[in-house]
């Protein structure tokens, strides 16, 4: 049997959930917000590296974004990922989940044989959780979402899924797409030992629209079914009443007020 080949799709996301919008332009203020590796993608990388350690595997990380998105590939190289593909092209900009998944699946096909595609459940920016299943859709592969454990045996994987009210064990023949939650593992830290190799460019391949042989009309904002009309900050309820007094008085008037609105 040929060695296991695992693809991990990762994304660079703004490094904080304290993002703000610019009320004038209706757009996100990204300035000064560093890009980080999406947290659950880190879990996906860890899951791939665990399978690599146990069964032997070549792990390739795949990301799409501006050239700076290559930073997250360097970081996963330092974790132990073997190769990386950066998909960067102005033509990709503005792609929604459908088009993003299309581009990623084109790149996966171009990269050759594979057994398993791992993704984080969702990215902390858009929080759609759609790209993993949609990659599976474009490649006509089975998908398993919400994975919190993956066990590999003889061309199959058994996955424990974390669902709302139950845990579900499913068995799938490879190749397949699996999206993982943060419960699956505790990701390792990238190692300083790997910093030199991670940054010397030897592990990185960069592809644009031409490499994928996809016309620009099928890419980016224009090809995407969904469009973001506006973004805004949610308005929270108005400030209520601060109950004065010492502990005794506060407790007493709180109880009285709760009784007043019939909640106790």
């Amino acid at each position: 049997m040929k060695g296991l080949k695992i693809i991990v799709a990762v994304k660079q996301v703004p490094g904080t959930d304290e993002v703000r919008t610019d009320p004038k332009t209706n757009s996100l203020i990204r300035q000064g917000v560093p890009g980080i590796l999406n947290p659950e993608d880190r879990n996906a990388v860890e899951a791939a590296l665990c399978l690599k350690e146990k069964h032997g595997a070549a792990v390739t990380a795949l990301t799409m974004g501006p050239p700076e998105a290559g930073d997250v590939l360097e970081e996963v190289f330092a974790m132990g990922v073997d190769k990386g593909i950066l998909l960067t092209d102005m033509a990709f900009a503005g792609s929604d989940t459908l088009i993003t998944a299309f581009i990623l699946s084109r790149a996966i096909i171009k990269s050759g044989r594979f057994d398993l595609i791992l993704c984080g459940r969702h990215a902390i920016d858009g929080e759609t959780a759609q790209v993993g299943p949609q990659i599976a859709g474009f490649m006509d592969l089975p998908q398993v979402t919400y994975a919190e454990e993956i066990v590999l045996e003889k061309g199959f994987i058994t996955v424990r899924r974390d669902l709302e009210d139950c845990q579900e064990w499913v068995k799938v023949k490879l190749p397949a797409v699996v999206t993982v939650t943060s419960r699956i593992n505790r990701p390792r830290y990238p190692s300083l030992y790997n910093v030199q190799t991670a940054c010397d460019g030897s592990l990185l391949t960069t592809w644009g629209a031409e490499d994928l042989k996809v016309p620009a009309s099928m890419l980016g904002l224009d090809a995407s079914p969904t469009v973001i009309k506006k973004i805004f900050e949610p308005d929270h309820k108005k400030r209520g009443e601060i109950i004065p007094g010492d502990e005794k008085e506060m407790a007493a008037s709180l109880i009285e007020k709760l009784k007043g609105v019939n909640v106790i």
Binding site: T97, L98, A101, E127, T128, A129, Q130, G137, Q143
Partner: peptide
């Protein structure tokens, strides 16, 4: 937007080649 809905809807969006907004 349950585990099932979020597993199913993206695949359907693929199959119907249409847009999908999550959650």
């Amino acid at each position: 937007a349950t585990a099932m809905g979020r597993d199913l809807a993206p695949r359907l969006a693929n199959s119907l080649r249409t847009g999908l907004t999550a959650d």
